Structures are given as structure tokens and as C-alpha cells.
Amino acid sequence: FDIYVVTADYLPLGAEQDAITLREGQYVEVLDAAHPLRWLVRTKPTKSSPSRQGWVSPAYLDRRL
């Protein structure tokens, strides 16, 4: 999967189903980028939180090589 970094805090609107909150600087794996406005991502697990999966706007993501 492609690795992206979150460029700004992402707080989903209440109406968005299956969306997750992301923090600036967080790394995520993009699982599904087929839709231009919503990408399915999975967060990297940390010592304090397990990995999470949900939909985010790709405008908040920047690809890492």
C-alpha cells in the first residue's frame, strides 16, 4: 500500500459515515483511492492506539516516497 502523511488535522463532519479523525504528521496507508473525494486509509498502530481504518479527504494527504 502507498504511504501518505497527513498535512493538517482532519476532523470529519458528523454526517460522514466511516470517517476517522487524523492528526497532522500522522502516517497512513491508502487502501482505496478509486473515489476522487474520499479515500479509504488505515492508520499505523502506536503503543497507545491500535490501527484504525476509515474514509478521509485526499486533500489532507501528501504522498511519501
Rank of each mutant, 00 (worst) to 15 (best):
Y60R: 02
Y10A: 04
S51Q: 08
L22Q: 01
L13S: 15
R38A: 06
V30R: 01
K47Y: 10
V5E: 05
Q53I: 14
A15C: 15
P50G: 08
T21C: 14
G54S: 03
P50S: 07
E24I: 14
T7R: 10
Y60I: 09
Q26K: 02
H35Q: 08
D2L: 13
V56P: 01
W55Q: 02
S49F: 10
D32G: 02
S49I: 10
T43L: 07
L31D: 00
T21H: 12
W39A: 00
P36E: 10
P45H: 07
L37S: 11
Q53P: 03
K44T: 12
D2M: 12
L11E: 14
L11H: 13
L31F: 02
V6G: 00
I3W: 15
P58W: 02
T46D: 11
F1C: 15
Q17W: 13
A33L: 05
G14R: 10
R23Y: 15
A33P: 07
R63P: 11
I20T: 03
V5W: 07
W39R: 00
K44V: 15
Y60P: 01
T21Y: 13
T43N: 02
A33N: 13
Q17R: 11
P50W: 03
E29D: 06
Q53R: 06
D2K: 09
L13P: 12
Q26D: 14
I20K: 02
T7F: 04
T7N: 11
R23H: 12
S51Y: 07
R52F: 10
F1H: 12
G54V: 10
L22P: 00
T43K: 01
T21A: 13
D32N: 11
A8S: 11
S48G: 14
P50L: 06
W55T: 03
S51D: 03
K44D: 05
L61E: 01
P50T: 07
L65C: 14
L31R: 02
Q26H: 04
A34R: 15
L40H: 04
Y10W: 10
G25T: 02
L65W: 14
S51C: 08
Y10C: 06
L65A: 14
L37H: 13
R52T: 12
A15I: 12
W39C: 05
L11A: 10
K44R: 14
L61H: 01
R42Y: 02
R64P: 15
V6T: 04
Q53D: 07
V28A: 01
G54H: 05
V41C: 02
R23N: 08
K44F: 15
I20F: 13
T43V: 08
S49Q: 14
Y10S: 04
R63N: 10
W55V: 03
K47Q: 13
L22M: 04
L13G: 13
V5G: 02
D2H: 10
Y60G: 04
Y60K: 03
R42S: 04
A19Q: 11
D9T: 05
D18E: 09
Y4C: 06
T43Y: 05
E24Y: 11
F1V: 08
E24A: 15
A34P: 04
T21K: 09
V30A: 02
Q17D: 13
A15M: 12
G14N: 12
Q26P: 00
T7V: 14
L11Q: 11
D18Q: 07
Q17F: 12
L61Y: 00
L22K: 00
Q26L: 04
R38E: 04
A34K: 14
L22H: 01
A8H: 12
S49Y: 10
P45S: 10
S48A: 10
Y27P: 04
R64N: 11
L13N: 14
V5N: 02
T46C: 11
E16R: 06
I3C: 14
P45G: 13
V6Q: 00
A15N: 15
R64M: 14
E16K: 06
E29G: 02
L13E: 14
K47N: 13
L31Y: 02
A19D: 09
Y10N: 04
D62K: 15
V5I: 14
G25S: 02
W39N: 00
I3M: 08
G54M: 08
R42G: 02
G54T: 04
S57V: 04
V28P: 00
E29I: 13
L11W: 13
L40R: 03
L22T: 01
H35V: 03
T21M: 13
H35K: 05
R38T: 05
D18G: 14
H35N: 15
Q26I: 05
G14P: 15
L37P: 05
E16N: 08
L40V: 02
K47I: 11
P50F: 05
A8I: 08
P12W: 07
L37F: 10
A33E: 05
K47V: 12
R64D: 13
Y27K: 06
H35F: 07
D9Q: 05
L22D: 00
Y4F: 09
K44W: 15
A34M: 10
G14Q: 13
Q17I: 13
Q53A: 08
A34W: 07
T46W: 06
Q17T: 14
E24P: 10
L40I: 02
R63L: 15
T7A: 06
R63C: 10
P50K: 07
V28G: 00
E29S: 05
T7S: 07
L65F: 13
T43M: 04
G54L: 10
L65K: 11
A34T: 15
P36H: 07
F1P: 10
P50Y: 04
V30H: 00
F1Q: 08
T21R: 11
E16V: 08
L37Y: 10
R63T: 08
W39Q: 00
V41P: 00
L40P: 00
S57Q: 05
V56A: 05
